[in-house]
Design a protein around this nucleic acid. Structure first.
Ligand SMILES: [Mn+2]
Ligand SMILES: [Mn+2]
Ligand SMILES: [Zn+2]
Ligand SMILES: [Zn+2]
Lengths: 142, 142
DNA sequence: ATCTACATTATAATAATTCTAAACTGTTGA
DNA sequence: TCAACAGTTTAGAATTATTATAATGTAGAT
């Protein structure tokens, strides 16, 4: 979903009613220069900061899942207590900072294309994700 | 932790009291031909099947985390509602079957060694994990 | 046998997520 | 224009994995 657009029309085009909650979520998620990573809680905070009205947590969950299903958000595979989403839906990989719990994008030049030589009968590959876990390099490990 | 051994001695060597719960967990986890993947719930079921006595869920959680910290178990990064562990602690990658929620090991020949060309100042790489998500190849997507 | 530090346990607490069912609203077509 | 309907939001409850608590039990040392 490209930025700087009429989200009302965009939502209609993909068959979603352009409610004010959805439009606001579109603005917060897609109307910006750079893509970013977020948890549901991050997103609720961002919306609350930009809106004077409240938005229900259930609506945020529902809408994030709808956007994901429609292909406008991607869920990142980290095992954490919470789910991480990405407004960058292209195939790309991540660094995960275990100190700060932050995700950082890799660009194409950072990691060679992964070539999968195994195939599982009757199954097709849906995604290939590389997660590079990093942490503080301090020698002072207590 | 190698199979077919005296787990009482092994546990002592790594500074853990060889309680009967821990010994049983060792047997279930490490006394077998092949490594495997499991969730906490899987493991509780396996233990219950092999033991007539009950084991507390808290003990299973605690002991799995101790074994992980000591390096005898590895946690796999999938985002799922539950955590997956691996008795294969060597660096290796996984297929994740989204239909059955099963993990399948890749061997070295399946995926080339990943070369990371980016580095993040002050951070060291702790792990590099590739997750290949697969699902049924049916054309009949309703 | 007794002591004590460490373990196990049942249970409660926590926290992310999903479910529910009632109230609300965008859209349609009479 | 406006009633009707289907889709949507919502607060709160339910679910579920996980962690914390605190009482009880026990392995190993003396
Ligand atoms: Mn979890
Ligand atoms: Mn989750
Ligand atoms: Zn990303
Ligand atoms: Zn594995």
């Amino acid at each position: 979903m490209s930025k700087n657009c009429n989200f009302i029309e965009k939502l209609r085009e993909i068959g979603l009613r352009p409610t004010k909650q959805r439009v606001k979520m579109c603005e917060v998620l897609f109307n910006r220069e750079k893509t970013f990573h977020f948890t549901i809680n991050d997103l609720v905070k961002m919306i609350s900061d930009e809106m004077n009205e409240k938005i229900s947590l259930a609506t945020v969950y529902n809408t994030v899942h709808v956007f994901q299903k429609k292909g406008y958000l991607k869920e990142i595979s980290i095992n954490s207590d919470k789910s991480y989403f990405d407004t960058n839906t292209s195939a790309h990989h991540h660094f995960y900072d275990e100190d700060t719990n932050e995700l950082i994008d890799c660009d194409e030049s950072d990691i060679d294309k992964i070539n999968i030589r195994k195939n599982i009968t009757g199954k097709k590959i849906n995604s290939v994700e590389v997660l590079v876990k990093v942490a503080s390099d301090n020698q002072n490990q207590k």
